[in-house]
Design a protein around this nucleic acid. Structure first.
Length: 370
DNA sequence: ATACCAGGGGCTACTAGGGG
DNA sequence: CCCCTAGTAGCCCCTGGTAT
């Protein structure tokens, strides 16, 4: 489908649908994901191409480097070690998706870009009411020289300094207010991404499993309460309700998935606790699988996920990365890296070679066979 | 002594969704 | 309708180890 047709069908879809109140909410997220799969991926989702759709939907380019995001941006700045790895990752993604390096940003990030459009519309709808209220709120302080909302003299000064030679005249104060407000909004938008990528990752994975493995809609659940999954009891009283990121329920096997686009230390500590709760709640005395799906690139975190033991056996049945070839490409050639600096990256590669750390493709294939 | 790097702790911004 | 909580991931900054 041509870009214009996609845009057109999107616009009509937006027009048909009534205004979206919660742009990042579960309902709108799934509406958008459905639309993506219907328009951009109509030729079918397979275990082999699933990773491409995950990246097209969720991967983004880091605005500070312009590169596909594979690691925290403070460590990916030019001159730092992860800049080189980000460059390598960027090249890998571009060549695999068949995109030029300067065009990747528009090829990916589908979900966030669409959700932001909805968010902007929702904000616009609320804006007039807010300005009305604001005028009322400011009324008692009229004519006393109170600061105008949105004014940011320091930011304005930076812009003015840089552009001074090109300015034919001094911009008016309202202009500065409008400009600084827009800059702030522009920067703030990136902060909202994390609200989408977390649960959005679970939603996308659920859709991918349904479509690529031909699993029935109801058998793939996101954020399901543990006791609503067959063969798991309600937790003892007092304990707070436990939600499972993603559950794939079939007669042959129940698979409980913890899905994290990337991992933080404190979340990592919760894995064994959650696993314990799952084990305690299990009521059919049948094996269930505990699976970790991630797009993390940090070698230490990946290594721990692969190696962590629970009561002396591996905690995760599968440790799944969206694409382990991306990990290989990002780490690059480790043969000349001195041992201490590259040891964890080398260990991760060994886990890939050994089949301990697998790709989404391999996991989907394994699911299909169950 | 210095510079650099990997790793990690704690905090931030933000939103959805539930309850009063 | 407002307030509060839970939960997401990234950002800022510190620490300890290692090579120079």
């Amino acid at each position: 489908m041509k870009e214009e047709e996609i845009l057109q069908s999107e616009q009509s879809a937006t027009a048909e649908k009534d205004a979206v109140d919660r742009a990042f909410g579960a309902e709108n997220r799934n509406r958008l994901i459905d639309r993506y799969f219907d328009t951009s991926a109509s030729d079918g989702i397979t275990s082999t191409n699933a990773w491409q759709h995950v990246y097209r939907l969720l991967l983004w380019s880091d605005p500070t480097t312009g590169l596909a995001h594979c690691y925290e941006s403070d460590k990916s700045q030019p001159g730092k070690p992860w800049y080189a790895r980000s460059l390598a990752f960027h090249e890998w993604v571009c060549s695999e998706l068949g995109t030029e390096p300067d065009a990747l940003g528009h090829e990916i990030d589908w979900l966030f870009i669409r959700a932001c459009t909805d968010l902007a519309e929702a904000m616009l709808r609320r804006e007039s009411r807010l300005t009305e209220v604001a005028a009322e709120q400011r009324l008692p302080y009229q004519n006393r020289g109170f600061p105008e909302p949105g004014a940011d003299p320091e930011l304005a000064a930076i812009i003015q300094d840089a552009l001074r030679p090109y300015l034919a005249q001094e911009p008016q104060e309202e202009i500065w207010r409008a400009v600084t407000q827009r800059v702030r909004q522009f920067l703030a938008v990136q902060n909202k991404r994390k609200n989408l990528v977390g649960e959005g990752f679970e939603d996308v994975l659920a859709q991918v499993v349904r479509r690529a493995c031909d699993v029935h809609e109801a058998s793939v659940r996101t954020r399901s309460l543990l006791y609503e999954i067959p063969g798991f009891n309600r937790a003892r009283q007092g304990g707070k309700e436990n939600k499972v990121d993603l559950a794939v329920i079939r007669p042959s096997m129940r698979t409980l998935v913890t899905a994290k686009w990337s991992v933080r230390a404190d979340r990592e500590k919760q894995f064994p606790t959650e696993y314990d709760e799952y084990i305690n709640a299990e009521s059919e005395s049948r094996k269930f699988q505990y699976v970790f799906v991630t797009n993390e690139f940090d070698p230490a975190r990946l290594m721990r996920a692969c190696e962590n033991l629970h009561r002396n056996s591996l905690m995760f049945d599968y440790v799944v990365h969206i694409n382990t070839n991306a990990v290989r490409a990002t780490y690059g050639d480790l043969s000349r890296v001195r041992d201490s600096a590259g040891s964890s990256r080398r260990r991760v590669i060994e886990h890939i070679d050994a089949g301990r750390l697998i790709s989404l493709e391999q996991w989907l294939a394994a699911l299909s066979d169950q």
